[in-house]
Design a protein around this nucleic acid. Structure first.
Lengths: 165, 165
DNA sequence: TATTGTTATACTCTATAACTATA
DNA sequence: TATAGTTATAGAGTATAACAATA
């Protein structure tokens, strides 16, 4: 019988890949969950941001969501058609819109929070409560250095699919 | 002065989002690294799989990489043009190709491994060696239950962009 | 002239289904 | 008839650059 294996001193080789894979899976599952509300993840992100900071402009929203102003236009068109968001011209600078949630839009904030919580419970379900706290701490430490913005994914445009490493 | 804060008993609310965000960032950074070799992440994945299991068919490769046979065609066309991969008709069933790396393709395995290692070091750099091992263990536990395949990302098609939750 | 929002355009990635050649 | 590979096509997502209105 071999001796009891000591804990490894370095992370196994595929840890970074595992992180990417689990992150992609979590994002996919979140997309499925918000689809229950008829929303895309980006819809949900916009609603969340406007819930926190009503009155911002389209450019500001684009920055927060990590996308371009031209992408914001059809996104808001769609949300406005569903009466979730309102565009009102700014009085002080008539070039700007001031974006805000309608009452219907605000009514989505609570169910979105519920979905986010249950989603997180599902994603972390394989871990004990202590391990979940541990993981949260490690991920927070990982994100502390990098310039990740609080509301946006970098997006997977360049990196989607299998990397194998 | 408030009392010393006890460690939290549940993970903070944005942990699942953080996982997705860090995973996307890691994938992006890996894409930048393999681009140094003139490869996409998918190229790298295909080369890695063929390094491990030469002789497989295009359909088999598609399954391993989590994509469709029709996507494999241009992928292999590109790798074949660069003389990294060979398609040879199977003798036993002439419908099949048997895929393999050329010598040039095999020569990429080592630098790919180097890149993967240095990529992982960079991704985990904010953690101590012990914490890296800890994180690896937690991620392994997370991935144990779900049906994640060892070579493929699910892909971010449905979930790209900002979710905000 | 600079800036906000908008439109036009093009490019990438993707999957589905029809097609061919073998079996 | 069933299967491997291929092609054609269409759809989603993306960014860039040109444009109108306002400052």
């Amino acid at each position: 019988m071999p001796p009891r294996t000591a804990p490894p001193r370095t992370a196994p080789p595929r840890t970074a890949f595992l992180l990417a894979q689990l992150g992609a899976d979590a994002a996919d599952r979140f997309a499925e969950r918000v689809a229950e509300l008829g929303l895309t993840p980006r819809d949900a992100g916009a609603i969340r941001v406007l819930g926190h900071t009503p009155g911002i402009s389209q450019r500001e929203l684009a920055t927060r969501l990590g996308t371009t102003p031209s992408r914001i236009v059809p996104l808001l068109d769609s949300l406005e058609q569903r009466a979730l968001v309102e565009r009102s011209r700014s009085e002080r600078d008539r070039r700007n819109y001031e974006l805000s949630l309608t009452e219907t839009g605000q009514a989505l904030l609570a169910p979105l929070r519920v979905i986010a919580e249950s989603h997180q419970r599902a994603v972390l379900a394989a871990l004990t409560a202590d391990e979940q706290v541990q993981l949260a701490g490690l991920l927070a430490k990982l994100s502390a250095g990098g310039g990740l913005s609080p509301d946006a994914h970098p997006g997977y445009a360049g990196a989607a699919g299998s990397s194998g490493a």
